[in-house]
Design a protein around this nucleic acid. Structure first.
Lengths: 206, 206
DNA sequence: GCCGCGGCTGGAACGTGTTTCCGAGAGCTG
DNA sequence: CAGCTCTCGGAAACACGTTCCAGCCGCGGC
């Protein structure tokens, strides 16, 4: 089923504590506030131990991103977007994600920065992240009930579904980077996403 | 001419030399190779002078991105994509951009990393960058000749053109970040862009 | 000519990500 | 128990982005 690299419960207690500490610090002060010396100290481990588990600060934060994505998936399965058509559901999905990010903007920006760092060592983890997001988008396109959502074992998305999900995922990611950099506000972010989702989902000449 | 202080245009000259040095170092060794001490030394200025002109390493590299974008625009106007329809021209446009980036991958990754850093201080410069890219995309959608391209003073894009350009720009940017991080090869990058451009440009049910 | 105002230079200094080293304890083996 | 290995904690060391400072130099104003 759902599983990230080696994230969830299989993750060592020690590593989990480290990631949780990083999340706490990122919530408070963003990327810069995640000082690895502090993370190690608060997590009760030595700096060397932290580096044995995570290759870099970005690696640590991408692990945190995976953890947060897992939480998002849980909430998604409990309350999948319920609009009457594709566009409505998609807009609702992104509105929910944005709302969750608004609550912890510092964390969101920190994770985004790590995700956009372009570190080749993170490619596998980032690929996994994108897969999870796109799977949720495909589910949203189809419109799933709370019961059926949990059992979806990915019966294979149609080519159109895959392309649409990929397009929406990329647009969303790029918009988030822009939001993080102050290019546009949260409201503008959602407006643009709605407009562009309408374009991508259009099946007629729009 | 312009006078920012005592020295007339020597300031411009200084800043230009700094940016050019940064580009050279980035070509050779990417983001990490752009050590500001080296940039300052090779440009023949003191570190403090560099910091008087540029707020940070990212700021400097975004200035380099602006310079490279101007070069791209020049080449674009000389040889605009000439396909028979929107999709052909768009695919050709991105293929040309990708080819230019392939020639200087290290530089491309370095500029991308700066562009995706999410630094709020760069928002104005990043907004300008996106405007330039989207203007070129709109021109490509319309199909311009080499002669008419130079005179286009942006006669106002239609709502559809703006949305399409925005969507393609975001998809391209996100794909680039993925490429930079080793998520996919240059070939895959272009395949995906072609596929997703087809989706965005589709005027029927595809 | 002399003064004051910047900007420039060379270099020190600071913070933080990252690496490295060493000694202590824990668990295993004989 | 003696020895070996592995990991961890503690802490120093290193690199580089960034800041700060002291002194110099050129220029406009007196």
């Amino acid at each position: 089923m759902f599983q990230y690299g080696a994230m969830p419960d299989q993750m060592e207690e020690r590593a989990r504590r480290i990631v949780e500490t990083a999340v706490e610090l990122a919530e408070e002060g963003g990327f810069e506030a995640v000082r690895l010396r502090d993370v190690a100290a608060h997590a009760g481990v030595a700096l060397g131990t932290l580096y044995r588990r995570f290759d870099s600060k970005e690696d640590l934060l991408v692990a945190a991103l995976a953890m947060e994505t897992r939480n998002l998936e849980r909430r998604f399965i409990l309350h999948p977007p319920q609009g009457d058509n594709e566009l409505q559901r998609i807009v609702e999905y992104f509105a929910l994600v944005a709302k969750a990010m608004l609550r912890r903007q510092n964390l969101a920006r920190a994770l985004l920065k790590a995700a956009a760092s372009g570190d080749p060592g993170l490619s596998k983890k980032m690929a996994a992240y994108h897969e999870h997001i796109e799977r949720m988008i495909v589910m949203t396109l189809r419109g799933v009930s709370s019961e059926s959502a949990g059992q979806l074992v990915d019966p294979g998305a149609t080519p159109r579904e895959m392309r649409v999900a990929e397009a929406l995922n990329h647009i969303w990611f790029s918009l988030l980077v822009g939001w993080s950099g102050g290019l546009h506000s949260q409201a503008t972010l959602l407006e643009k996403m709605e407009s562009l989702a309408g374009l991508v989902l259009a099946r007629d000449g729009s």
